[in-house]
Amino acid sequence: MSLIARHLEANGIPTVIIGSAIDIVEHCSVPRYLHTDFPLGNPCGKPYDREMQLDITTQALDLLENASATNTTERTKHIWSENNEWRGNYSKVADSNREHLRLKGEKRRAQQTEIKASGESRAPMIS
């Protein structure tokens, strides 16, 4: 998505990204980025929390309007929960799931071979 933002911006359309993977977005380098420090999936706010969702989109528009230079990052004020276990759990590789992941990789490579054979050139990121 960062690449799309860069392309639009380079062609005259100002952009702002709302996301939750700050390392990936900043590594790519984008004009304006609003970071929601949540588990991936709900960058616009917690499910069904209409007040928070409106606040985050409002902040994104403010950022779009006020950023005076490229690579401008802001953070929302919202926190996911007092419990931060999700940070360590995401895509965790441990002895307990190593064999499962190895088998998953094998299965995926077989699928990728099938996809290629069918002429499809698009492969999603793995998860």
Binding site: G41, N42, R50, T57, L61
Partner: peptide, 29 residues
């Protein structure tokens, strides 16, 4: 449809579209 995307399927869900597609919010704004 979000099943193929790499979001945190243990910590949250994507049943509320407004949590990732801000159309409701933009309508208000």
């Amino acid at each position: 449809y979000t099943d193929e995307l790499s979001w945190d399927k243990k910590a949250t869900h994507t049943k509320d579209v407004a949590s990732f597609l801000p159309l409701n919010q933009l309508n208000q704004l």
